[in-house]
Amino acid sequence: MDLKSTCLVVGGSVCSFKLLNTILRFLPTPELARKKSWQWRNISTSLAHSSLSGAWAVLCFYLQPQMLEDLIFHHSLLSHSLVAVSTGYFIYDCLDVALNQPCKQSCEVLLHHAAVLSCFSLALTSRLYVGYCVISLLVEINSVFLHIRQLLLHSGRRNRQGTHIKAPRPSVTYSVISWVNLGTLLVFRVCTLVWMSRWLAAHSERIPRYVLMIGTTGLSLISITNIVLLHRLLMADFLSSRHNTSKDHERKPVSPE
């Protein structure tokens, strides 16, 4: 895929996710979520991207397992297209967040997206490290359950219905999603980022200094946000005896990513 085609795919991705977000305006929204309709649409759009990119990344490695042996040079049209589509999503989400959220609430997401975009842009323009970027998109498998959890919170489906006690028990659906979310977070976020950091260190002599700096900075920022995310989830769903629902209506934690 040449540079012009890549730009067309990225631009088409931006427009497609914007169109999806617009369509969501006209679809039924749970009553409780109507108070924060922008967050509902934003998280739903993110769920669509996570579902698409997570499955796409698995497919890339299933069809071309040899890409794991050479994450620098080896890639396919399918994997290159995946990185281009995800780049379009992150550009779209940056614009959506910047235009609809106060700076204090959006800086974490924007910082994360900036780190991802710098790495993805390098891969798209140089046609190098595409496989490494596809590895990072395995994180989106966890993001699927992370976003479903948030949608349950925004729709008021966290606790069992009909309970009138001070500490209502979580619904079966929410409990299952919470455990799956935690498990996939440990596997696809923590383990994946540890593996990526190890790979970067092992191949540091083959990588130009500026690329190493971009990769190290990006991984460091994403690792910090994942530690914060893990702490929030443990406190909200497993360690806290009292669940404060209002605290769980946060902006979607970052992903790349």
Rank of each mutant, 00 (worst) to 15 (best):
L27M: 15
P168K: 07
S53W: 03
F145N: 01
P168Q: 06
R158Y: 13
Q161C: 13
L68I: 08
D237H: 02
S143G: 02
L124Q: 03
F26L: 11
L230C: 08
F145H: 02
A123R: 00
L68V: 05
D237M: 00
S136C: 04
F90P: 01
H112S: 14
S143V: 05
W179D: 07
Q39S: 14
L138N: 00
W199S: 11
V10R: 04
Q101T: 02
F120G: 05
L52V: 13
R251M: 15
F238K: 03
G131Q: 04
L146C: 04
L78Q: 06
R25P: 01
I177F: 08
R149M: 03
Q150F: 06
S76K: 06
E257V: 12
W195N: 10
R242K: 11
R209W: 02
C60R: 00
V254M: 01
M67L: 14
A57N: 10
L151H: 02
C133W: 06
I135P: 00
L52A: 14
S175D: 08
V134K: 02
C103K: 04
F26Q: 09
I222E: 05
A48I: 08
Y132E: 03
V134D: 04
L200W: 07
Q101P: 00
I135K: 07
H154K: 03
I72M: 14
C7E: 09
H154S: 04
Q64H: 13
R160T: 10
S81W: 04
C94G: 10
A201T: 09
I23R: 11
S118F: 10
H154T: 01
S13K: 06
L200E: 04
D2F: 04
S13N: 09
C107D: 03
P170S: 11
G215D: 02
L151D: 06
E31Q: 09
K252N: 11
S175Y: 05
D96M: 08
S118L: 14
T225Q: 08
L239C: 11
C133M: 14
T22N: 09
S204R: 06
V190A: 14
P65R: 01
S143P: 03
R158N: 05
K35Q: 15
H49P: 02
L77D: 07
S126P: 09
F90D: 00
R206S: 06
K18T: 11
N21H: 10
H243D: 15
W195A: 15
K166F: 13
T217C: 13
E140V: 08
L3H: 04
C94V: 12
A57V: 11
R206D: 10
M1F: 07
V144C: 14
M213L: 13
I214V: 10
R34Q: 15
I214K: 01
K18E: 12
S204L: 00
I165E: 12
A167W: 08
L182R: 07
Y132V: 01
F188Q: 09
S171E: 06
S197W: 08
W40N: 06
L63T: 09
S255A: 12
C133P: 07
V130Q: 02
R34N: 10
L47K: 00
V10S: 08
L32A: 14
V172K: 10
A55V: 15
H164A: 13
C103V: 08
Y132M: 06
L128P: 09
L239M: 11
C7Y: 12
